[in-house]
Deep mutational scan, measured.
Amino acid sequence: IQIFEKGDFSGQMYETTEDCPSIMEQFHMREIHSCKVLEGVWIFYELPNYRGRQYLLDKKEYRKPIDWGAASPAVQSFRRI
């Protein structure tokens, strides 16, 4: 998965294949504004440590949070399923 600090795949980008319990600790990001799921299925969580509201992401590109069903870019953790 590739995660971006700004919408439309702009700003700082990080790519990982590992679960992330805290985007702040692992990537020094506060929010995720866009992402590209390159393979597999992932779950975004609103809070750290896989808690809070969940969003299921299939293999595709998400230009903004509304594309994965979120009203805001408040994603604090994610993991692959």
Rank of each mutant, 00 (worst) to 15 (best):
N49K: 07
I66E: 10
G40V: 00
I1S: 00
T17K: 14
I81N: 15
Y55K: 02
S34M: 01
S22F: 07
A70R: 14
K59E: 02
L47G: 06
I43V: 09
A74G: 13
Q12R: 11
C35K: 00
R51I: 07
F27G: 11
R30F: 10
V37N: 14
Y14A: 13
K36H: 09
Q2T: 06
Y45R: 00
R51K: 10
P21S: 11
M29H: 15
G40I: 01
A71Q: 03
I81M: 02
I23D: 01
I32E: 02
F27Q: 11
Q76G: 06
K36L: 07
S77T: 01
E18I: 14
I23H: 03
Q26S: 07
L47H: 13
H28T: 12
Y62S: 04
K64A: 12
T17L: 11
P73R: 09
K59I: 11
L38A: 12
L47W: 05
Q26C: 04
F4C: 09
H28R: 07
K6D: 11
C20P: 00
E5I: 11
E46K: 02
E15Y: 15
D19T: 06
R53N: 03
P21C: 09
R53D: 13
P65G: 09
F9T: 06
R30W: 14
S10F: 05
L57V: 13
K59W: 05
L47D: 05
I81G: 09
P21Y: 05
D58N: 01
M24S: 05
S72M: 04
R63V: 04
A74V: 14
G7F: 14
D58Y: 06
K36S: 11
D19Y: 10
E31I: 13
K60P: 04
E39F: 08
Y50V: 00
T17D: 06
L56T: 07
D67K: 04
V41M: 12
P73F: 15
Q2S: 12
R63S: 08
Q76L: 04
C35E: 00
D19Q: 15
K59A: 11
D8L: 14
H33Y: 11
G7V: 09
Q54A: 08
I66T: 06
I23N: 07
Q76S: 15
K6Y: 07
T16A: 11
A70H: 15
F27P: 10
E46T: 04
L38C: 06
I32K: 01
K64E: 06
W42C: 03
M13G: 07
A71E: 12
W42R: 00
W42L: 03
L47P: 00
W68R: 03
A70Y: 15
R30L: 07
P65C: 03
Q12T: 13
K64W: 03
S34K: 00
Y55D: 01
F9G: 07
S72N: 03
V37R: 12
F4P: 00
E5Y: 14
Y45K: 01
Y50R: 01
T17E: 05
E39R: 13
I43R: 11
E61W: 14
C20K: 08
P21T: 09
I32M: 10
R80D: 02
I3T: 03
C35W: 09
Y45Q: 00
F9D: 02
Y14H: 12
Y50E: 01
E46P: 03
K60R: 04
D19C: 09
Y14T: 14
M13L: 10
Q26M: 07
Q12N: 14
A71L: 03
C35R: 00
K6V: 12
R53A: 07
F9R: 04
S34T: 01
L56S: 07
V37D: 03
E15C: 04
I43H: 03
M13Q: 11
V41Y: 03
F27V: 11
C35Q: 01
C35F: 15
R51H: 11
E61G: 11
E31W: 14
R63T: 05
D19H: 15
I3E: 00
F78A: 04
Y50W: 07
G7D: 08
F4W: 06
I23M: 07
R53M: 13
S34L: 00
I32V: 08
Q12W: 06
L57Q: 01
S22E: 07
K59N: 01
G40H: 02
D19N: 03
H33L: 08
T17A: 11
R53G: 07
G40D: 09
D8W: 12
N49E: 11
Q2E: 10
K59F: 05
D67I: 15
S10W: 07
F27E: 11
A71Y: 03
D19K: 04
F4V: 00
K36F: 14
W68E: 06
G7Y: 08
A74Q: 12
W42E: 02
L57E: 01
P48Y: 03
M24Y: 05
W42M: 03
C35D: 00
C20H: 02
W68G: 04
I81V: 11
Y45F: 07
G52T: 00
I43E: 15
K60L: 07
T17C: 12
I3V: 06
G11V: 03
G69E: 10
I43Q: 13
E18Q: 10
G11C: 13
R53P: 03
E61P: 14
C20N: 04
H28M: 06
T17H: 14
E18H: 07
M24D: 05
F44K: 00
S10V: 09
E61L: 04
D8V: 12
Y62A: 05
Q12K: 06
S10H: 05
E31A: 13
R53V: 08
R53T: 08
Q26H: 05
M13V: 08
K60I: 03
E15T: 06
Q12V: 10
V37S: 14
Y14E: 15
R30N: 12
F9P: 01
G7E: 08
D8G: 12
E46G: 05
D8P: 09
Q54G: 06
R30T: 10
H28Y: 12
P65A: 14
V75E: 00
P73T: 05
D8Q: 15
Y50F: 09
R80V: 13
I43N: 10
R30A: 13
R51E: 12
L56D: 15
Y45L: 01
E46M: 03
V37Y: 01
I1R: 00
G11W: 03
G40F: 02
L56Q: 06
T16E: 13
D8Y: 14
V75I: 03
L57F: 02
L57M: 15
E5A: 08
W42F: 06
D19S: 12
